[in-house]
Amino acid sequence: MRALLFALMLEILVNGLARGAIYALIALGYTMVYGILGMINFAHGEIFMLGMFGAVYALGALGSAGLMAVGITLPLAIVAAMVFSAGFGILNERIAYRKLRGAHLLAPLTSAIGMSIVLQNFVMLSVTKGKVDFPRAIAAPLADTTWTFGSWDLSSIQATILSVLPDVWARWMASKWVVQSVHLSALQLLIFAITLGLMGLLFWLIQRTRLGIALRAVAQDRTMASLCGMKVDGLITLTFALGSALAASAGVMVSMYQGVLRFDAGYMMGLKAFTAAVLGGIGNIPGAVIGGLLIGLAEDLTSFTIASEWKQSTAFAILILVLWLRPRGLLGERVADKV
């Protein structure tokens, strides 16, 4: 019994956490911008999508220059994508949000929605309506290296379940929850490593450096921070750049993980990452990470135990439940009457 549950947990953990780590990276961007400006950066999902494309274009440029070795091109592409997306994030803030900073909250949100549509359609019109393939030769060494753990003989476990539980439940459990083996790929390991590394860097930056102190000060009180001589505009630009770079790194990993990228990839991803940010408590950085991981796990649990058909609905069901029962999220502060 214990072995069975262990196997189940592992399988869901590996796949679900890989998804969740990606949601978390994107959710950080939402939460940071919200923390500092109090606005939902609706175009953040598009920044993630631009990161996906930025990496493939960087790989294309490197390929044209004759660089093929994965060990060199992949890190370079990730960095290039991060810079590229950060650039778009900064421009976005500069063009569409800065003028609306003190306005009624409808204004920046509407502007962000407009920006999101513009960016998405720009990519659709200038790159392709269809899909672009992430170069297989780059992703394959990582994606094809897989390890399979365990090859458990489950007949005795199934028999145990059937003898212990009521008939209907037992059959359901035996059919849904029994796992023969667990797969783990090098790509998934890379996703965990990069996510952990980047988050560690971010926490260090925010908690341990002078820059981080300044960022936190601006988030707490913009006017006061500016009176104390901090360059508020610059710090806000930095926030956008950081969030966008994180989203871009998520974008590179997603495009390797899935093998293809599309202009509309950012919409659903952004929505789910936003859900993750709300679940963790928007404005709260550790909250975004926890929320992302939870959403990833919940989704995989759904496709595993119920059916993939309902996977999409899970995130939205969670969103509505959280806002209903605990609007401030798991770790957030009270937001109900903060108008």
Binding site: A18, Q258, R262, D264, S308, K311, Q312
Partner: peptide
């Protein structure tokens, strides 16, 4: 079934 924009099939593959 999977939504037509879904690109990560790993849970379904399991």
């Amino acid at each position: 079934g999977l939504a037509s924009e879904e690109m990560d099939f790993r849970a379904t593959i399991s």
